[in-house]
Design a protein around this nucleic acid. Sequence first.
RNA 1: GCCUUGAUAGCAUAAUGGUAAAGCACACGAUCGAUAAUCGUGCGAGGUCUGGUUCAAGUCCAGAUCAAGGUACCA
Length: 948
Amino acid sequence: MTDYKTTLNLPKTAFPMKANLAQREPQMLKRWYELDLKAQLDAQGEGRKKFILHDGPPYANGEIHIGHALNKILKDIIIKSKSLSGYYVPYIPGWDCHGLPIEHQVEKKKGKAGQKIDYAQFRQACREYAGKQVKKQMEGFKRLGIIGDWDHPYLTMDFKFEADTVRSLGKIIKNGHLDKGYKPVHWCIDCHSALAEAEVEYEDRTSPAIDVRFYVSDVNDLLKRITTQNGKEGKGKVSLVIWTTTPWTLPANQAVCLNPDVDYALVQTKGVGEHGQELLILAEPMLAGIMARYECEDYEIVSQCKGRDLEGLMLKHPFYEKEVPVVLGDHVTLDTGTGAVHTAPGHGQEDYVVANRYDLEVYNPVGGNGVFLEETELFAGVHVFKANDAVLEVLKSKSTLVHLESINHSYPHCWRHKSPIIFRATPQWFISMTKKDLQKTAMSEIEKVQWIPDWGKNRISAMVSNRPDWCISRQRTWGVPITLFVHKESGELHPRTDELFEKVAKAIEEGGIDAWFDASAEDFINEDATEYEKVSDTVDVWLDSGVSHYAVIEQREELSFPADLYLEGSDQHRGWFQSSLLTSCAINQKAPYKAVLTHGFTMDEKGEKMSKSQKNAVAPQKVMNKSGADILRLWVASTDYTKEQRLSDEILKGVSDIYRRIRNTCKYLLSNLSDFDPAVDLIDKEKMLPLDRWAVAAAYRVQNEVVEAYDNYHFNHLYQKIHNFCSVEMSGFYLDITKDRQYTMQASSLARRSSQTATYHLLNAMTRWLAPILCFTADEIWQLIPGKTSDTVFTGEWYQGLSDLDENSEMNHEFWLNVIEVRDAFKKEMEKVRVSAEGVGSSLDVEADIYCNGQYFQSLEKLDDEFRFLLITSYARIHDKANKSSAAAEYSLSNDNKVWVHVHKANSEKCVRCWHHREDVGQSEAHPEICSRCESNVAGEGESRLYV
RNA sequence: GCCUUGAUAGCAUAAUGGUAAAGCACACGAUCGAUAAUCGUGCGAGGUCUGGUUCAAGUCCAGAUCAAGGUACCA
């Protein structure tokens, strides 16, 4: 028996099924850097339209986590796909390097600035620490396959960036947005410092909860405002009762706040506690509860009014000789207390907001050490937490204490000292939302930006429209200074402020922020230093990154303002999207971006938040080292990233399965091109077999969808499309069918070259579809495509060698749809025969007779004997349904059509070469074991094919 | 607590208000010339829940539950 196997063109390729990505990827990366892929892309970019994706700087602290990976991979998918769409996409990665978390890391090692280590050394240590973090994170990002200008990233601690941050602030000030004010901030007495939001944690604490009388100064004024009921008149003194858990803030009281829409009642009682007969003003809906609390059952409503009726009514302070007004605020609720809120603008955020509206004094009698200032009447020198008792004593003596009890509630604590903190107003710098209509500008710019998904617009609108003035000052060490000189007495800015900003910026450009901190006022303003003071505050880090549109987009030659796209997690509506928008509006009266794309957060398989402590976090490093970056990238592409994504080992396993399918399809395609040289063997489109032209057309249609999905950032659509194309159209149909032609026909026959031509086109197109996502794998395939014209798959554009079918031709898409339907019917029938008939395994063991109506008959009949290759059977005969045999089973097709299929075991001898059962096996004396088709292929001119 | 967003088979996803789709997984089978592959057949959700609008709702509206993000914890 001759071994005909050697006469077959079996698949051959160097492309391994086992991806070994974890080992292979670093080598590929090395190659890209050796080729200087970045430079190649830049060179290609000359003359191209730009697409500016501006990187939001991650904070330079800690290992990269899955959120970083998701964000960078999404950016990279966009960068690579936009480049294939013909854009020049310069990408400059950035890092946010100043601020508190880095200070803390350094404090842990070196101690607090100004104590164990001097400020300049501390800043140097911060700089070094941040530099290390950047390096570490950069390695992680590069490993993910992200292409960008890694040799010239932007760091917010670069001297140039620091100088440009100062310049940005200068522009903002020049445009009139700066305001100075006092604002209550979280203050830790032990730290002797303001705390940022992140440094505050909430714990339960027991506090005294007191109800306090504010006597009405002018009862007649009150009576004018309220509706007297039934001519009743009350007896005794009248007071408005407030409730508070921080008695020590009463010395700073400036007002009592009521809800304008709530009903308040004037209540007659016999007197609460020791007090004699009296009238109390309380929120009516809460009356019963309050009276029960006071253990006062005998009471009567004398009259009522709305909160708004009392606006401006003057009250006597419970222990000071002063009057305070009634003000209104929506923050007053009826869950606790009395419906009347003691308002100390120096000690509370909401009080502060109300105070601004009513022009009340933001009075803070408490020093940084937590002790009442000298001038504080009654309590000078007393520590605030000890002052509670003192206040109670005073209240009692003045008969203004209504009720006292203990309450257990959540209260802010310092995260390091674990001690309770206070709210304390301190001088701060603000960017005003209203002074120069910044809020209005921002709101109208929001309208012009494309928000993806569109609810992002609602989110940021709500936030911008509700936000208070932006407090940009911080009392920190590691940050860009607020480089102002203020008059020691008047507090006015230096008249040459604008000019000085540039002078300072120049110095910082040379020597970094230390050029400010180490300098004295004289260094910049000479003799004016006697009158002007150098501000020592730093700027909120959100301002650093927020001005990257100025410090990066406007400064780098390859970029242009505004950016086409900002892409960050949805938490950045509060953060970077907003700080960028506000600073850009303040500087340019314009949003810094044309579009903003947001992604959600990554959860574990149960949809729970990933956290290091819960151990459900999937580390990107681990995935890269185990499965490869391409698997992680494919996972990113598979999710609907606009909402929360899930990630777990099981999900990664699923992604790996899809990866293997795609990889194997590409491997098979490659393996059929081992003897193909496109320069010589490529077949003209017109000469290609119809089935091959269909395959190219199918790819053409998929490519349109793929490009559209990239354009719309719907990566999960193309994940499905590409996978579907690989398994359904290619593996399950086209490749299965053409296998016979590939293997058995003469190597250089037209029909085989035709199929190889289709394969060549498919690979060229598909590697590019994959390149933005599976960048390593796509490029690995690219290296093995015969006749490739560029070093990597990343340069150039989408493959242009595909084309659709002519819908007017006989074998148009509808024709092939019919073929597929008939083929599906056959497969079902085949399955039945396989089970029932002896010796039927492969579909080549059977013959098929297909009966169909006129329309189908006419179109399928043309295929004649080649129909068997479509069904992969030994014989396939098309008949008109008029002749249908009773053995044929009926199958329904679309459009109410039907087809009848009869499958039966093939009786002829099996050709040992092509495995078809043919009557002509044995006819040849030279080759008795094979069919005549094979004989022709082995020893003759070779068979010819017309269609399949 | 408040605001925003979301919820489709075991899994990750799809569907201009019009018969809920393809894949993975799973089960069984074939093949052993894509073999750490490949092919076939089968199996599966009536849409988180409760109402409403409509000839028609996964899709629009209201409420609830759960989750995520933001914000607040306040007198």
